[in-house]
Design a protein around this nucleic acid. Structure first.
Lengths: 192, 192, 192, 192
DNA sequence: CATGAATGAGTATTCATTCAT
DNA sequence: TATGAATGAATACTCATTCAT
């Protein structure tokens, strides 16, 4: 019965994904210590035991969640963006559009950013994430479109603000989201 | 010979303050769920039981901590600042100087900002805190020194960034603090 | 395959009853303060945590125990007895037979009487329990078979003595139980 | 300074007695486990530490209390009573008068009886206490004034009822005390 | 696989006891 | 001596994890 074999595999995959998807949000909102398996399983809509079929422990699940948050944060268009033959200002505007749109429409994106940034704060995540943005910033500074200052610091500020609104989005749906322009303005020189 | 009434009162006051002072930092760093009374008491340098002489429960202590964070966040010079007969730009620069200096020198300030903002995010703290800054922003917009845009949103952005660096300061002592100018620039029009 | 809904309900009911049944005896013997959850759970034969699945706290369990003791004390045959068209003397003898037999054979009865009476002593249980016996006493006084005196006082004496032997039974199995006749004699005139 | 030496000794004695006196009542009402040193000391009107100047531990104090309760229960007039050249009925009436008067007027007597009986129930106190009463009962049975039956059982019943009203007295001041006659009647044949 | 009742190690809280004043 | 703040072992309670169904 190879057919049912596959189907089984599919179901497994589905449940596993369901758990991860729902957990990302839950952990992003409540943190590791603030998340009880009993609450989480209720939130997912499955039994407590089921989680342990797919993950060895709460920490194992958390680690998985982090791997996901890494992907969400890093597998965005940024890496391709930096290589395009465009002026930095354009890149920054595109990046900001992309980020704001995702913050608005995709809770998983917000959760990913939140978890990822928290880990950076705790010194556990790879800070190379900021590198790509730094490159764009330096390019822009040469082109005269980006404000002066330490590129790393500006990059951190930029993504810090993104984190800020990611967290806001996780807690309330009703809040004044920053505009793409506001976000871009953190890096760009004002035009008079 | 019994201890004198006043001396007892004094000792109580001292211990209570010690607990609060050390707890503000601990809770700001680890959150409520992430804080174990056993660890906290070790960090304070007292026995677990002592905490329960002064606070009914972990949650009671946490609430007290929040009351403190309110004071730290709100008892700053902002309220007096807004009333001074100064241009908004000057006010914003003074405010930013004050904030950055405190972020650098006073961990309690950082912890207060962190806890307070977290509570605002969770919809539990009084958002009237932003009002004072909004007034300065509106004044500045009239004077042409502050960027256009919704004053509340700008105020939230400003304090959001402060929160960002407060949290950074709680986790690592070794990081690139934003400058007072960078902070002020969030609100001020660029001058060429 | 999930457990069936009914089977789960059944298991819960069973465990809950087990806890209550064993706890009645334990609390009756040791009192609230004298009962440790760790000991109690060992005595029941379950883990400590299991108790907290079914009861919010030690006090919650204790309250439940009391509700049970009310039922044990009050759901006896007395209420039906009083309505029968029998002489009071007969009723008192039947009641005494019933009580003594239960004291001898049913530890739950003894525990119920013990807990219930303790609560009456502490002014927390409904003293209307004595009413039924009072009625029989008054009937008997009219018929000349019951000794003179305040019916309430006689009723209290009667059940006080029952309490006495209930407690004795809880502490030692080897003791001289009062006879049904001795108990009845508390209320009945001597026949020469 | 022999004078002040003595005075010191006196004060010591006074405090010690105060503790014992107040503790007897407190322990009788709440039991060993139900008595907190913090509450007890408040009830006595001294600091917690003071108790430990006079007694090595809570259990040490409890033991002392028991010694007192032994004296209260046993050092009554009963031992002299039994030797008097009187008919048993007279002895029983005197004993009952004595007991009831003390139950009414002397909380220490009630507390002593309560503690002593509780210890007998728990098999820790000397049951020889009942002996004296048994002798009187046997004398009365020969004289025809006391009801038939096992003397030990009757003695236990008699003192059980005394215990009952001792406990009632400890909990409420407002209750229907048994009369001396009622108490005596437990042992005496009815006279027509 | 999925369930949820049961477990027991871990955490919060209490309370007998100590000790500096 | 007397005090009451401080202690930490004992106790109550929680929650990640297991396992029979």
């Amino acid at each position: 019965m190879p057919k049912s074999q596959e189907r089984c595999q599919e179901i497994r995959e589905e449940t596993r994904n369901l758990i991860i998807r729902k957990s990302v949000l839950y952990f992003a909102r409540n943190g590791f210590a603030g998340t009880k398996i009993s609450d989480l399983s209720k939130h997912i809509g499955i039994a407590q035991g089921t989680i342990y079929i797919y993950f060895k422990s709460k920490e194992d699940l958390y680690r998985e969640i982090f791997a996901i948050s890494d992907k969400i944060a890093q597998n965005n268009k940024l890496t391709t963006l930096v290589k395009l033959p465009l002026p930095a200002e354009k890149k920054i505007r595109m990046m900001s559009d992309y980020v704001i749109r995702n913050l608005k429409e995709d809770e998983m994106f917000s959760a990913g950013i939140a978890l990822f940034t928290q880990r950076i704060l705790e010194g556990e995540a790879d800070q190379s994430f900021y590198k790509t943005t730094e490159k764009i910033i330096r390019q822009g500074q040469k082109e005269g479109s980006v404000v002066h200052g330490n590129a790393r610091k500006l990059s951190e500020l930029y993504w810090g603000v993104v984190y800020l609104y990611a967290v806001k989005g996780l807690y309330t749906s009703d809040y004044a989201m920053i505009s793409s322009d506001d976000l871009a303005r953190l890096l760009l020189e004002d035009r008079k």
